[in-house]
Simulated assay, not measured.
Amino acid sequence: MKKMITALAACAALSAALSAVAAPAQAATKDPVSALKAQLVPGHGVRFTETVAWSNGTEESEIQDRKGVFQFDKKGVAAFDINIHWDDDTYGRQRAVGVGNITYHTGGVMPMVLPEGKTWYKVKSYGVPDSYGQILNPAEPKTLAALIKHGKSTKNSITGTITFKDLKQASAWWAGAKAPSSFDSTKVSYTLTLTSGGLVSRVQSKFTATEAGRQAMIAVDSRYSGWGAKVSVKAPDPAKVTTDFR
Rank of each mutant, 00 (worst) to 15 (best):
M1A: 14
M4E: 13
I5L: 14
A7M: 06
A9S: 13
A10G: 14
A20G: 15
V21E: 06
A22H: 09
A25P: 07
A25K: 11
D31I: 00
S34P: 04
A35Q: 02
A38K: 11
A38L: 03
A38D: 05
Q39E: 08
L40G: 02
P42H: 02
G45I: 05
F48D: 10
T49K: 12
E50L: 13
N56Y: 09
G57S: 07
S61H: 08
D65Y: 15
D65A: 14
K67W: 08
G68K: 02
V69S: 09
V69E: 05
D73W: 07
D73T: 15
D73Y: 07
F80P: 13
I84D: 09
D87G: 12
D87V: 15
G92E: 12
Q94A: 13
N101S: 14
H105A: 13
T106A: 14
G107I: 08
P111D: 09
V113D: 11
G117S: 06
W120L: 09
Y121C: 09
V123G: 10
G127V: 02
V128G: 03
V128Y: 01
S131V: 11
Q134T: 10
Q134H: 02
L136S: 05
P141Q: 09
K142F: 01
T143E: 02
K149C: 10
K152A: 15
K155N: 12
K155F: 08
N156K: 06
S157D: 13
S157N: 07
L167C: 03
A170D: 00
A175F: 09
G176C: 06
K178F: 00
S182T: 08
D184E: 08
T186A: 04
T186D: 02
V188C: 06
V188H: 03
Y190F: 03
L192E: 00
T193Y: 00
T193Q: 04
T195A: 12
T195V: 13
T195E: 08
S196Q: 13
G198M: 05
L199M: 01
S201I: 12
T208W: 04
A209V: 11
T210G: 06
T210I: 10
E211Y: 06
Q215M: 07
A216Q: 04
A219V: 03
R223D: 10
A239F: 07
F245D: 07
R246S: 11
